[in-house]
Nucleic acid binder design. Structure first.
Lengths: 394, 394
DNA sequence: CATCTTAGTTCAGAGGCGAAAACAAGCACC
DNA sequence: GGTGCTTGTTTTCGCCTCTGAACTAAGATG
């Protein structure tokens, strides 16, 4: 029952400005005339507001297009160089830092390898801060031009300014990554779970584009999901919503590395798939998985069934318009098995919600986590295109 | 990415009016002074707005309270007789119609029994329409005073004006109940799933009060859930979100009446519990269940475990602040077994989200479905306290 | 070059909010 | 009882935002 409370007449301007900017951003080059139609605002308002935005250099002109018989339309677009966003992917084996312009074109990136078992928080923080400096100088961008730094990490991120992280598999329990980073930078920081940032990327720029109720699942070493309700990522009361990988699909079943039994991840996480297939990994999981898939072992069919059960539970519970399967395992499975995955999902879900859902593969590849992290910055920019706050994403 | 688009200066007034009215409604008798603090609005705005509301008779004075040394505060409250709401519960065995004032005090009610297997939509519609007439005349309320009719039904309700219902267990597939009712009344109609209306009732007036991220589960013949995110009931793209009963907790497990296997309902639905305990029902399920619970059969412990698994999946996926267990089976189980249910849930969920959740019993009893249905009308009234629309709830 | 068409800008007016001044209604103390 | 103090409520006034309508801009057409 916590409802938003709006107030003054000034909020209208801010809100409408955000509406206009979003329309401009997602419709590409657009004339003022189109914008009145798209936003529902009057021509007068669009005129004054675009004048403001042009004056602030947030928006720039982008050519003209003649209209039959009358004055040609002037096209406008968001200035992709008005500002930049840093996106960071903290994963089990590496830290990747990317610099993106406002169109989310990657301008520079840098990777730091992590020794698989050692994840000293200080070291990770140093890598990130160093990475930011590197990508800025590589791209010739000054820190003042950067609107913020988004960071995608494994595990659960507490809401709050310190960006406190709990990631059992990572060996982090209560690491205040946000606070560590703030010692080295004054830029706005947004820390969020990596599955969520990936989901955000697929939702805004990938296969989920345009959906307002969607689930983006991440299949990799871990298994997670981003649940999007009415255009907003669903976080729950302590930002840990979407822990799909540890929902139980076989009560009392296979043991999971989380300590529980029968978790979805204990069936379709990469380690579980290889284990069920009796493969002792040679070190390259992608290759191992490819071999299992080629083997026509019954394990493949079982995996599809388990995944279908997991997806069906999401269909029943969330009733999404779209399910996007991402993560490298997800894409590798999906490429050959998508029809079977759809069948298995249909077999385990109710007819009405299943009929409303389309199941598709993600299309952003492994950089989606960093891109999505940068998107946190973009989102803030589009919502309040001048007042950037220095907080962790909650 | 579907964001609300706001526009003119007039929307502010409407929005602030709703904020004020909500504050007034949920804080009981309150002075204008308190309202400025509660709503964040200026004293000036509160003053003019309350003057309007008093003039329209939506708000009335409710005594005074002296303040140490100064002018006494005049208390205001929503006029409980400004309007009335009808709430209807369409269940497997009966149709219940209740008339509520704005404080949700029941002023009259009437029941119609349904022969268990026969659910002619026309008959149900006739019962509802007749029931409305009966409760109005019993309470001496004229139709003009009624703000709307809320109806809670089993199954999935399509979004849209016709209130089309799909309820397999009820024998309804595509029944346009809303359209049937509109032939007999011109009052605003809100049709929604009964588990959701019950959830709404517990959220607003029962154990869920004050929570903004919550799940209200309904355990009865069927098993369902209402997921509340940020104060709003989560419906999904085709309004069927929350079909928790048919999520799978044992892939390939017990057959369920939905046609699937391993559904939660196939373990903790009342028929499943009795079946697993080997009880052939004597007709009174409540008594049967009481006997099973008293028997200390291992089935009891198993039931707790399965319920815990189902709840744990909600904890992991939704990360709610509160889980309310409702429905008659839920309450009967919970009364003696709540600590065990909590333990089973903890054992099957991740530590962080579990720590953020409290699991409690519902406290509204069997009338919650009708009350919640009436609450749909109340909600509309609080959001737009003069313009009532004639549509089905989507 | 006059006219038509479409795009974009300017202006006046209405409605809304908040700060502060004004007003109201008690209490305390002389 | 009068005077000042305290607190609650209303009124006044200035500022902000939006919109409709009039107006300007810029091209096409014949």
């Amino acid at each position: 029952m916590a409802r938003p409370q709006r107030r003054t007449v000034r909020d209208i301007r801010r809100g409408n400005r955000a509406v206009l900017l979003r329309a401009l951003y997602f419709s590409g080059p657009t004339s003022r005339n189109d914008l009145t139609a798209r936003t529902g605002l009057s021509a007068a308002t669009v005129s004054t507001m675009t004048a403001d935005l042009l004056g602030e250099n947030i928006v720039v002109e982008a050519g003209q297009v003649e209209s039959d018989g009358g004055r040609p339309r002037v096209l406008l677009r968001v200035n992709p160089e008005y500002g930049f966003a840093v996106g960071v992917d903290v994963a089990e084996t590496h830290v990747r830092v990317g610099l993106f312009d406002l169109e989310m074109t990657e301008r520079a990136k840098v990777d730091y390898m992590l020794r698989p078992a050692r994840h000293d928080p200080e070291l990770v923080a140093r890598h990130i801060l160093a990475g930011v400096e590197v990508v800025l100088s590589d791209a010739g961008v000054s820190p003042e031009q950067v609107l913020g730094i988004g960071v995608g990490v494994p595990g659960i991120v507490e809401p709050g300014a310190d960006g406190v992280i709990h990631a059992k598999t990572f060996g982090w329990d209560g690491v205040p990554l946000g606070a560590l980073l703030r010692r080295g930078t004054s830029l706005p920081l947004y820390v969020d779970n990596g599955a969520k940032t990936m989901g955000q990327a697929e939702l805004w720029f990938g296969s989920g584009r345009g959906a307002s109720d969607a689930v983006i699942v991440l299949l990799g070493v871990g298994v997670g999901a981003t649940i999007v309700a009415d255009g907003t990522t669903f976080r729950g009361v302590s930002s840990s919503a979407g822990e799909w990988g540890h929902t139980k699909i076989v009560a009392g079943g296979r043991p999971c590395r989380c300590g529980g039994r029968g978790c979805l991840e204990a069936y379709i996480g990469i380690e579980a798939i290889l284990d069920r297939a009796g493969v002792t990994s040679g070190g390259d999981w992608e290759e191992d998985l490819a071999r299992v898939l080629a083997s026509k072992s019954p394990v493949v069919e079982e995996t599809v069934t388990y995944l279908g059960v997991g997806l069906a539970n999401l269909v029943n519970l969330v009733n999404p318009e779209k399910i996007v399967i991402g993560g490298w395992v997800g894409v590798q499975l999906g490429e050959s098995l998508l029809p079977g995955i759809r069948r298995a999902t249909a077999a385990n879900s109710l007819a009405e919600p299943y009929a409303a859902t389309s199941i598709v593969l993600g299309r952003l590849g492994p950089d989606a986590v960093a891109l999505g992290a940068a998107t946190l910055v973009l989102e803030e920019f589009l919502n309040a295109p001048q007042v950037a706050r220095i907080t962790a994403a909650g």
